[in-house]
Write a protein that binds this DNA or RNA. Structure first.
Length: 439
RNA sequence: GGAGCCGUCGCAUAGCGGUCUAGUGCGUUCGCUUGGAAAGCGAAUGUGGGUAACACCACCGAGAGUUCGAAUCUCUCCGGCUCCGCCA
């Protein structure tokens, strides 16, 4: 949510934002409504003020009985007028709040304008795509043959887009989790990463979190992550829904809280399963485990001072890149254009990792800078040293989308005989250098 | 799931229909005092809306209601605690 004062003051600018982000919204009509809202609000406050004054006179000992009776009958009339005005205000506020939720965040200056994902720009690439002396297979074929991925049984037991991961692949998942948390809780390594990426942030390690996977729909609305209800598993009788990302329960941790300036930044790393209905993706990526209804993820969520949030986002991207470099997986870093970026984002950076089995880069990471957009709805603020209170800035970013990272490893590290080499950094966790079929 | 308590300004508490535009203590900040400090004394200290700035208004877990008037009474919901039951 944007600041209504800002919207009022920067009308033309907001219109431009709406156009760039392909949002159909009649801003003029909305602002006319807003004028009306302020007018009614003033009226309500005036009436309430009068009500209090008269009420005080009724209560006063100096008021004579006859006068008191007179005042009480006066109050009856006032009461009705107030009620009517309040009803008007409530009605207009309902519309107003709905409208405010439709206006997206303002894209950063370096966000390219574009209609859809074709407008995204690659900022840099890293790593050599592996050269194979044979035709590389995709992860499903390899995983199935090795007995480490079983989607067939999952389809029978549960349904499509679910899977059993088995054997060494499970150990590899826990290896990824381990190496990730070791990094994110290590000040020294984080300092090194920031230095190498030339990013200027206060180093403070991440607090590991295992968050709930259920969340109230109302909280999702505050996170601006509930624009497509059909994408979520919702349980109306419990007024709860499954999260689509750990971000959904990490972001609201400090709802209604006011930070001291020196508290920031605060960084969390949450490990959680994510659930998505993939309602709009029928027939897309049906093979293997690329697009599942259920997958595990480590998500970074940080709270920072407004002037530090872009640098914070760059820091999170540097961490993402570091993790991929540790695994020696080739990737490209991409800045997402206005037509493709997430609704609450002011700057979105995606990382696509090379997947030889599909002969293309696929999205494995996203780093979303939402500025004060989510924080304003969540009422998460900071008191500056001069006493002023403002929304904090929030960043969220993938550390590992584990399923997709496993895919990238399987496909990049595959060998002609169908076995998969284990990346050096994961060998201690998996306990072997090559994953072969279990005899 | 059953029974009983409870939710007030950072924390702790008062508040039992009008004097609550919410009192007190702790904490915090500033000042006095001091060679300096502690103690003591004095003052300030919630959030939001609104305004050029004031005024003004709202907020006592959330919402609805009763009333001329609600932190206070009623209802619904949310959350917490204690006991019982069940359970990893």
């Amino acid at each position: 949510m944007l600041d209504i004062k800002f919207i009022r003051e920067q009308k033309e600018f907001i219109k431009e934002v709406l156009r760039k982000r392909k949002t159909k919204f009649d801003l003029d009509a909305f602002l006319a409504q807003d004028d009306k809202r302020l007018e009614i609000l003033k009226n309500v406050e005036h009436l309430r003020s009068e009500q209090n004054q008269v009420s005080n006179r009724i209560a006063s000992n100096h008021t004579k009985d006859a006068e008191r009776a007179q005042l009480i009958s006066e109050m009856r009339g006032l009461k009705e007028e107030l009620k009517k005005s309040e009803d008007d205000l409530n009605e207009i506020m309902k519309e107003w709040q709905k409208d405010m939720l439709v206006i997206p965040n303002i894209p950063s200056a370096d966000t390219p304008e574009g209609p859809d994902e074709s407008g995204n720009k690659v900022l840099r690439t890293w790593g050599e795509k592996p050269a194979f002396s044979f035709v590389p297979k995709d992860h499903e074929e390899i995983g199935k043959a090795l007995g480490i991925i079983d989607t067939d049984t999952a389809a029978i037991v549960t349904g499509s887009r679910f899977s059993y991961l088995k054997g060494d692949l499970v150990k590899m998942q826990f290896g990824l989790i381990q190496m990730c948390f070791e990094l994110l809780t290590d000040d020294e390594k984080l300092t090194q990463i920031a230095k190498e990426a030339n990013v200027n942030v206060k180093i403070k390690s991440f607090i590991p979190i295992i968050p709930p996977v259920f969340v109230r729909p109302l909280i999702q609305v505050k996170m601006a992550r509930f624009l497509t209800p059909e994408e979520h598993y919702v349980f109306p009788e419990d007024d709860q829904m499954l999260v689509g990302s750990a971000e959904h329960t990490l972001g609201p941790i400090h709802m209604d809280h006011i930070f001291k300036e020196e508290d920031l930044p605060i960084r969390y790393a949450g490990y959680s399963t994510a659930f998505r209905r993939e309602a709009g993706a029928a027939g897309k990526d049906t093979a293997g485990i690329l697009r599942q209804h259920q997958f595990d993820k480590i998500e970074m969520e940080t709270f920072s001072l407004p002037e530090h949030s872009t640098e914070e986002q760059n820091f999170l991207v540097a961490i993402q890149e570091h993790l991929l470099r540790e695994l020696k997986l080739p990737y490209e870093v991409m800045i997402v254009c206005t037509g493709d970026m997430g609704f609450p984002d002011n700057r979105q950076i995606d990382i696509n990792t090379w997947m030889p089995g599909q002969d293309r880069y696929r999205e494995t990471h996203s780093a979303d800078s939402t500025g004060g957009f989510q924080a304003r709805r969540l009422n998460t603020r900071v008191r500056r040293s001069d006493g002023k209170i403002e929304p904090v800035h929030m960043n969220d970013a993938t550390a590992f989308a584990i399923g997709r990272t496993l895919i990238a490893i399987i496909e990049n590290y595959q060998q002609e005989d169908g076995s998969v080499r284990v990346p050096d950094v994961l060998v201690p966790y998996v306990g072997k250098e090559v994953i072969k079929h279990r005899s």
